[in-house]
């Protein structure tokens, strides 16, 4: 497939990618109370990656998410697992959730729940997966030195 991606399409996708990634983060953050969560969020980011590939190929993908997929995968896995261990070390059960409620000046009441940390791990893995799969299966022409 030695087509030149259309510059207009590419531009469009790259400019749309930012809002889509923000939306995916919103899904991640809202998931505990609204539809969404790490999976849905990660998958939206994944779809963004696919669109970027379709519009501009691997280079565009790299411009949008400039990380190796393996780093995201490893990081996600480590974060999710460590969340489990944090509560274990704190004397609770593995993966037991902890809650922290603070009233911060200006922002108001912020509720921090440890499952969010876990969900971030999920999100990272799903993004890393989308990235890795697109890079590997779409890896033609294979000019890029793929990290994963």
């Amino acid at each position: 497939m030695n087509r030149r991606p259309s510059p207009i399409l590419e531009h469009g996708v790259v400019s749309a990618a930012g809002p889509m990634l923000v939306f995916s983060l919103y899904l991640l953050a809202a998931g505990h109370n609204q539809p969404g969560g790490g999976f849905a969020g990660g998958l939206v980011a994944g779809v963004t990656v696919v669109l970027a590939w379709a519009a501009g190929g691997p280079d565009t993908v790299r411009r949008i998410v400039p990380v190796r997929s393996s780093v995201l995968l490893g990081l996600g896995l480590v974060i999710a697992t460590l969340t489990g261990f944090v509560s274990l070390v704190a004397g609770g059960a593995f993966l037991e959730s902890g809650y922290l409620e603070r009233t911060l000046p200006l922002i108001g009441t912020v509720k921090l729940v440890s499952p969010l940390g876990f969900d971030i791990g999920v999100y990272l893995v799903v993004v890393g997966m989308s990235l890795g799969l697109v890079r590997a299966l779409g890896g033609e022409p294979p000019e890029e030195e793929v990290g994963s």
Binding site: S70, L75, L77, V78, L82, G84, F85, L88, A93
Partner: peptide, 15 residues
């Protein structure tokens, strides 16, 4: 859980 999660953590770290 540690018997399962420690190798998982190690797996994440090896990546």
């Amino acid at each position: 859980p540690s018997a399962i999660a420690v190798p998982l953590l190690a797996a994440g770290l090896t990546v």
